[in-house]
Structure formats: structure tokens, C-alpha cells
């Protein structure tokens, strides 16, 4: 470098190397806050996270009232709200996570963060943090609408519902990440939405399994039905349903092992 260059750039130690990773907790917090903001910034993400569950709840309650549909003898809003919460958990932990991660892979974000001090575990924790914040927003909105419609959940059940929802989140997140880490972003988008719609219609998530007649026993093995059953047992009866929780745990273990085995970062 010539003297003239030095004079022109006026270098004075501003850029002197001082490398270092931020504390792990700070990195995870930054990542979670970023994930949350981006999840909530997208119109279509908000639609799938909040608007569709609310429509399902209000529509379901109105339709059950008008048509006199029997939901195991329970009040329609009591019978439907746990399932709608299950739908909300599923939409975020599976569909939103899969789509967001698929495009992060496609846009080289995962590769870029791979060169940052944020370890993969921190990235994953950040994603989980973002998921949980969005789910909390969903629960507040859906819960408020349900309460306005006359929902009276079992008080103990509200506590029992938390581990059920977390286990459901783990199961769906593993499956969503497997999808995002193996397919192209567009294919992930299509499959994640399709699976969501299929489970919404036929997965015994919003409606109890008894509404599906003979298919009821088979449906019990789906993660959607298991999460719906677990939340219904908790919020309607104040009990922990063991079988659905076992089903969710198996899906969670399967999803985690598939994702850790097949997820490609680029």
C-alpha cells in the first residue's frame, strides 16, 4: 500500500481484528427473536397461524349449533377448542417451520449462518424459541376467541395441555425439518401445505375421532389425532391421555432421527 492510499482511506485501527463469539445465550436469543419476527411478518404465515384456526373455531361452533351436530355430548366450543389449539400447534410446528426452513436452505441462509459463530444447536434452539413465541400468540388469540364464545376449560387441564402441546410441537417439528432438509423449497411448500390440509380435513385434529366412524382406530396413530386427543382429554376432562402421548413420543423420536440423519444444509 502506498502512503497516498493510506492517507486517502484514513485507516486508524477501526477494523483491527477483535474476533469472538457472542455468549451462547445471547446468540440463541438473537436467533429466536429474528425467527419470530420473520414468522409473524409474512401475511400467509399469519393466515395459517391465526386466521385459519380462528375461522375453524368460529365456523365449527356456529355450524355445530345450527346443524345440531353431536360432539360426544359436550358443548361445541368446549369440544372444538382443544382441537383448534392442536391445529394451531401443528400449523406452526410443521407447516410454517418446514416452509421457512426450506427457503432458508434455498437462499443460502443456513450456509451463511454455518459460517457464523452460531452453532447448529443454537440455530435449532433459536428456531424452537421462535416457534414457542408464535404458538403463545396463537394460544392467546384462539383462547380469547374461545372464551368469548363461552369456552370453559378444565382448570387443571390448562396445565396438563402444556406438555401435550410441547410433545406435539416436537413431533411435528421433526417431521417438518425432515421435509425442509430433503426436498427443494417449492416442493416443501407444496407438501407442507397439502399435508396440513389433509390432516385438517381427515386427521382427527379439530373434530374428535368419534366423528370419523370406522376409521377412528387407525386415525389414532396419526400425530394430528394424537395431539387432538391429548388436548381434548386435558382440556375437556382434566386427564392425561397416555396412549396419544405415547404416539406423539414415537413420532417425535422418528422425526428427530429422520431429520438428524437426512437433513442437508445446502
Amino acid at each position: 500500500m502506498t502512503q497516498q492510499d493510506t492517507a486517502r482511506t484514513g485507516a486508524d485501527g477501526t477494523f483491527a481484528p477483535r474476533p469472538g463469539a457472542a455468549p451462547y445465550a445471547a446468540m440463541v436469543r438473537a436467533q429466536a427473536s429474528m425467527e419470530t419476527r420473520l414468522l409473524l411478518r409474512n401475511g400467509e404465515q399469519l393466515l395459517i397461524a391465526v386466521v385459519i384456526p380462528v375461522i375453524a373455531l368460529v365456523g365449527g361452533v356456529v355450524a355445530a349449533g345450527r346443524l345440531g351436530i353431536d360432539l360426544d355430548g359436550a358443548d361445541p366450543v368446549d369440544a372444538l377448542t382443544p382441537g383448534v389449539l392442536a391445529l394451531a400447534v401443528m400449523s406452526t410446528a410443521f407447516t410454517s417451520l418446514a416452509i421457512a426452513t426450506g427457503f432458508e436452505r434455498r437462499y443460502g441462509l443456513l450456509k451463511r449462518l454455518g459460517a457464523s459463530p452460531l452453532p447448529r444447536s443454537g440455530l435449532l434452539l433459536g428456531k424452537v424459541g421462535g416457534l414457542l413465541v408464535v404458538q403463545a400468540v396463537q394460544v392467546v388469540v384462539v383462547g380469547a376467541v374461545a372464551l368469548a364464545l363461552g369456552w370453559s376449560p378444565d382448570p387443571l387441564g390448562l396445565l396438563l395441555a402444556v406438555p401435550c402441546a410441547l410433545l406435539g410441537t416436537a413431533a411435528f417439528a421433526g417431521l417438518g425439518l425432515t421435509l425442509a432438509g430433503t426436498l427443494r423449497a417449492e416442493a416443501t411448500l407444496a407438501v407442507a401445505n397439502l399435508v396440513y390440509l389433509l390432516l385438517l380435513a381427515g386427521g382427527a385434529v379439530v373434530l374428535p375421532r368419534s366423528s370419523y366412524g370406522a376409521a377412528s382406530e387407525v386415525l389414532a396413530l396419526l400425530p394430528s389425532a394424537a395431539l387432538g386427543d391429548a388436548l381434548r382429554a386435558a382440556l375437556l376432562d382434566g386427564t392425561l391421555a397416555v396412549l396419544p402421548l405415547v404416539v406423539l413420543a414415537v413420532w417425535a423420536a422418528l422425526g428427530a432421527s429422520l431429520a438428524s440423519r437426512f437433513f442437508r444444509w445446502e
Binding site: P19, M34, R41, Y107, G108, R112
Partner: peptide, 17 residues
């Protein structure tokens, strides 16, 4: 990693960020 700065040939950010 903390000691090295990397600029990729393209991408490396969320599309909506």
C-alpha cells in the same frame, strides 16, 4: 469460525429480512 469472516458468492440472508 469466530476468527474468520466469510462472504459467499450469493444469498445468505432471509428473503424478507
Amino acid at each position: 469460525l469466530p476468527r474468520v469472516g466469510v462472504m459467499l458468492q450469493g444469498g445468505g440472508a432471509w428473503s424478507g429480512v
